[in-house]
């Protein structure tokens, strides 16, 4: 088969690691959605040629170390406060491309007020929100987005709304606010979904540069360690359970 041996030349290269990703091995568990979303953000920054003009704000949660993986300037915010931090960064640096990267506990529990108010003020930033229905970093406790019946370390018999309240769709809530221009729910479980998610990231960044207000991109993701499944099973479980509860698609696009 030597006649069909593909030459590994620049000319034949169709996919390689973007230079906006550092060489560090990510601390995430095998198959974690965070890695895929990080990569997409890095690729979009690279494609927009904005590495020197992008400032990221990382959360408290699994993505706390996001700053080790994207080769841009970063601020690490206190738990839930990334939107407040990003507000100031953008207001004081209007020419910069500013985004927050947050999980469900950070954005939809402890940081709810900051989330609502950045969206209401319509700051020109992008919010990337990974919703995997669990607190990963602290060891798999219940999140505001944990599904009814889903078992976690702090709802070991399954989430009971009488005891724990209901999961909620913060994407739908922020889509109601005047300051958001683009609210969408994506996933990264298949190559097709990844391609769509990347387009959403690009659009969010472009909106922020165009001064259109907050773009809010939610990624329904997996936490295979927290869910106690292998990565492939976690993707399947997500398709069968998470996505019906958090339907994919645009909630707002103006």
């Amino acid at each position: 088969m030597a006649e069909f041996e593909v030459q590994k030349t620049q000319e034949n290269l169709v996919y390689s690691r973007t230079k906006v990703l550092t060489d560090n091995v990510m601390h995430y568990c095998p198959g974690c959605s965070h890695g895929t979303v990080h990569k997409l953000i890095a690729e979009v920054i690279d494609e927009m040629n904005m590495q020197d003009k992008t400032i990221g704000v990382s959360p408290v949660g699994c993505a706390v170390f996001a700053y080790n993986y994207l080769d841009i300037d970063w601020a690490e915010a206190a738990h839930g406060r990334a939107p407040a931090v990003a507000t100031a960064i953008k207001r004081l640096n209007p020419d910069k491309m500013v985004f927050t990267y947050q999980g469900d506990g950070d954005l939809a529990a402890i940081g709810t007020a900051e989330t609502i108010h950045i969206c209401n003020r319509g700051e020109n930033v992008a919010i990337f929100f990974v919703n995997n229905g669990i607190y990963g970093m602290t060891g798999g406790q219940m999140a505001p987005t944990t599904l009814i019946g889903m078992k976690t370390a702090t709802c070991p018999y399954g989430r009971d709304p009488k005891l724990h309240g209901f999961p909620y769709k913060i994407g739908n809530i922020v889509s109601q606010l005047e300051g958001t221009c683009y609210v969408t729910r994506q996933s990264v479980n298949t190559p097709a979904a990844v391609r769509k998610a990347k387009k959403a990231i690009r659009k969010a960044f472009e909106n922020s540069l165009a001064g259109k207000g907050v773009s809010f991109v939610e990624f329904v993701g997996t936490c295979n360690s927290g869910w106690k499944m292998d990565p492939v099973a976690a993707n399947k479980w997500m398709e069968e359970n998470m996505i019906p509860a958090y339907p994919l698609g645009d909630l707002k696009d103006i």
């Binding site: 088969m1 006649e3 069909f4 593909v6 030459q7 590994k8 030349t9 034949n12 290269l13 169709v14 996919y15 390689s16 690691r17 973007t18 990703l21 091995v25 990510m26 995430y28 095998p30 198959g31 974690c32 959605s33 965070h34 890695g35 895929t36 990569k39 990264v188 298949t190 190559p191 990844v194 391609r195």
Partner: peptide, 26 residues
């Protein structure tokens, strides 16, 4: 390896971005 078409699906979805893809037309 003979079945590879260089579609890059594997690389696109890899959470650790550890796959580089080449494609050649014969």
């Amino acid at each position: 390896p003979d079945a590879c078409t260089g579609c890059a699906s594997c690389a696109i979805i890899c959470p650790d971005t550890c796959i580089t893809v080449y494609r050649q037309k014969f």
